[in-house]
C-alpha cells in the first residue's frame, strides 16, 4: 500500500529540527528509522502533514561513555546498539533485548530512540529502559528536559514528551560488577511481537540476590515495573526454587494485560509469572544461556 502525501523536512541540526517541528504544528511527525512509522503510513493508519526526518541530525547520533552511565543517541540504530562494545560491556541487558527486536534489516534502520518514543508496550525496549531506570533527554524550542523512565511512558503509544519535543538521547546507568541480565521474550513465531517479555537484572552476592530490577513487556498500556517481585526476591537464595517461584507469582500484580489475537489476559498473567521466574534464574546465571 501507499502512504498519503506529506511534506518533508530534513534538518541538519538539533536546533533546526526542533524549530521545524514547532513550525509544522501538531500534525507533524518525527521520522526516526521509520520501521514502525512507514508501515503505519502505508496502511494509511496515520496522516501526518509533515515528516521531520532526523536522519541527518548529528546531535542525535552516537553512543558515549559518560562515567556512571552511557549515553545512547536517539538515532543510534538497533544494529549500532547490538554491536557496540560499550553497550555490551556496560549495559548488556540493552544489547540482549535489542538483538531480539525485529530482524537484521529492520535493526539496520530502526533506532533506539525511535522505538522508545513510539512507546509500544509490546515493544521490547520500553520494559528494558524501565527496568534499568534510564533517563530520557529531550529538547524542545524552549527547554531541555531529563525525564526518568518511570515517568516517560504515559499510556499506549504515548510518552511524557510534548508535541514540539524531540528525544535526543537516553542515559543508561551502569550497574557495575556483580549484575547478571536476561531478557525473556515469549512469542509465537520469530517475527511476532512479544506475547509477554520480561527484562531482568540481578545482583548476586554471598549466594543471595542483593538487588533485582524487573519490568514487563506487553502487560498493560505501558511497560510495567514488577515492583512486588523485586521486593519479594531481594535476599532470596536463587537456588531456593520454591521461594523464588512464590516471589515470582506476584509478577502480574498491578498489570492490566491486553486481550488480542495471540493471548487472553489470564494467560498473559500466567506467562508473566513463569517468565519472570525464568528471567531471574537466567539473570542469576542458574540456567544456561
Amino acid at each position: 500500500m501507499i502512504p498519503a502525501a506529506f511534506d518533508y523536512a530534513r534538518p541538519s541540526s538539533l536546533g533546526d529540527a526542533v524549530e521545524a517541528l514547532t513550525d509544522a504544528g501538531e500534525d507533524a511527525k518525527v521520522l526516526a528509522g521509520g520501521q514502525s512509522l512507514l508501515p503505519l503510513l502505508r496502511l494509511r493508519l496515520a496522516y501526518p502533514t509533515v515528516l521531520i526526518d532526523l536522519g541527518r541530525v548529528p546531535e542525535l547520533q552516537g553512543i558515549a561513555d559518560e562515567g556512571d552511565h552511557i549515553r545512547i543517541g536517539a538515532m543510534a540504530t538497533h544494529d549500532d546498539v547490538v554491536r557496540s562494545p560499550l553497550v555490551n560491556a556496560a549495559c548488556p541487558l540493552i544489547a540482549l533485548a535489542t538483538a531480539t527486536v525485529a530482524d537484521p534489516a529492520v535493526r539496520h534502520r530502526g533506532t533506539f530512540g525511535g522505538a522508545l518514543a513510539h512507546a509500544d508496550p509490546a515493544g521490547d525496549l520500553p520494559a528494558v529502559a524501565l527496568a534499568l531506570d534510564c533517563v530520557f533527554l529531550t529538547r524542545s524550542a524552549s527547554e531541555g528536559r531529563e525525564i526518568p523512565a518511570a515517568e516517560f511512558f504515559v499510556d499506549y503509544l504515548e510518552t511524557a514528551m510534548d508535541p514540539g519535543e524531540i528525544l535526543v538521547a537516553v542515559k543508561v546507568p551502569k550497574l557495575g560488577a556483580g549484575w547478571g541480565y536476561h531478557y525473556e521474550k515469549f512469542h509465537r513465531t520469530a517475527q511476532s511481537w512479544a506475547t509477554v517479555g520480561v527484562a531482568a537484572a540481578v545482583h548476586r552476592d554471598d549466594g543471595t540476590i542483593q538487588d533485582v530490577k524487573v519490568a514487563l513487556t506487553n502487560m498493560g498500556s505501558t511497560p510495567v515495573r514488577a515492583g512486588a517481585v523485586e521486593t519479594a526476591v531481594r535476599g532470596l537464595d536463587p537456588h531456593d526454587a520454591t521461594s523464588l517461584a512464590a516471589a515470582c507469582d506476584q509478577a502480574d500484580q498491578g498489570t492490566s494485560p491486553p486481550a488480542d489475537l495471540h493471548a487472553q489476559p489470564d494467560y498473559r498473567r500466567h506467562l508473566a509469572r513463569v517468565l519472570t521466574r525464568r528471567a531471574i534464574r537466567r539473570a542469576a546465571d542458574l540456567e544456561p544461556g
Binding site: Y8, R10, G34, P39, D53, G55, A105, H108, R109
Partner: peptide
C-alpha cells in the same frame, strides 16, 4: 534494509 520501509528521500 527493506526497501518498502525506506523513503526514497531517506
Amino acid at each position: 534494509v527493506k526497501s518498502c520501509s525506506v523513503l526514497a528521500v531517506q
